[in-house]
Computed example of a mutant assay.
Amino acid sequence: MVSRKHKKATLYKKLELLRSLTNSHGHSKTSIILDASKYIEDLKRKIDVMNQDIASDVRAPLPLRLRVEAQEKGFLIEVLAERSCCGLLVFILEAFEELGLDVRQARVSCADRFHLEAIGVREKHGGHDDDQIDAKVVKEAVLQAIHNWSEISEQK
């Protein structure tokens, strides 16, 4: 039979291991376990974001990099394609308009390759913030714009 003292020592070792793995600063069993739970939830969220990024990359009609990052007031949107994409800017700007994003600042290059960096801000309509959008919605709209542009440019 395993002694009670041995069980307690084993539990203590496991808690210390859990504490070190999750970078917990807690000292009680409860706080270490809560920190571990938060750590696991954060890992799950990161995996979800990575899976969404992978799914977005698979659906992209041409080799490109798309990054949408939420900012304090709006979004930073970056689109980079290794070739020139005549007319793509118009489709992306139409997507911004449909989302109600005002372009506050942008840099665009369409010469040898397509590169867009833009800051889009969504104005509150009538002081209300009822219809919030997040970076995922903006990314999906830009991907759809790229897909629409791709379909039309293939027909030409």
Rank of each mutant, 00 (worst) to 15 (best):
M1N: 05
V2A: 11
K5S: 15
K5N: 09
K5V: 13
H6R: 02
K7S: 12
K7H: 10
K8F: 12
K8Q: 14
K8H: 08
K8M: 11
A9T: 03
T10I: 13
T10A: 15
L11R: 11
Y12D: 11
K14L: 14
K14R: 10
K14N: 07
L15S: 12
E16H: 08
E16P: 00
L17T: 15
L18M: 13
R19N: 09
S20E: 08
H27M: 12
H27K: 14
H27E: 13
K29H: 12
T30R: 14
S31E: 15
S31W: 03
S31Q: 13
S31I: 05
I32L: 07
I33R: 04
D35P: 00
A36I: 00
Y39L: 01
I40Q: 11
D42K: 13
D42G: 12
K44T: 04
R45K: 10
I47W: 05
D48L: 10
V49R: 15
V49C: 10
M50C: 02
N51V: 07
V58T: 06
V58K: 11
A60Y: 01
P61N: 03
P63V: 05
P63G: 12
P63Q: 04
P63E: 10
L64D: 06
L64F: 08
L64E: 02
R65W: 02
R65M: 12
V68N: 04
A70G: 11
E72L: 07
K73P: 00
K73I: 03
G74D: 02
F75C: 05
L76I: 01
I77R: 04
I77E: 00
V79E: 02
V79G: 07
A81M: 09
E82S: 09
C85R: 00
C85M: 10
L88N: 00
L89M: 07
V90K: 13
V90N: 12
V90G: 09
F91G: 03
I92L: 10
E94T: 01
E94S: 10
F96N: 04
F96D: 02
F96C: 09
E97Q: 11
L99I: 00
L99F: 01
G100C: 13
L101P: 01
D102L: 14
D102A: 13
V103L: 09
Q105T: 04
C110S: 14
C110M: 09
A111E: 09
R113H: 13
F114K: 08
H115I: 01
H115L: 12
A118T: 00
I119C: 05
I119T: 07
V121S: 07
V121D: 04
V121Y: 03
R122V: 05
E123W: 04
E123Y: 06
K124M: 12
H125W: 08
H125I: 09
H125S: 08
G126R: 08
G126N: 07
G126Q: 06
D131H: 09
Q132S: 08
Q132W: 04
D134S: 06
A135G: 04
A135N: 02
V137E: 14
V138H: 05
K139V: 03
K139G: 03
K139Y: 09
E140D: 12
E140K: 03
E140V: 00
E140N: 05
E140R: 05
V142A: 01
A145M: 04
N148Y: 02
N148V: 09
W149M: 05
E151V: 14
E151Q: 12
S153A: 09
Q155E: 08
K156T: 05
K156E: 11
K156L: 11
K156Y: 10
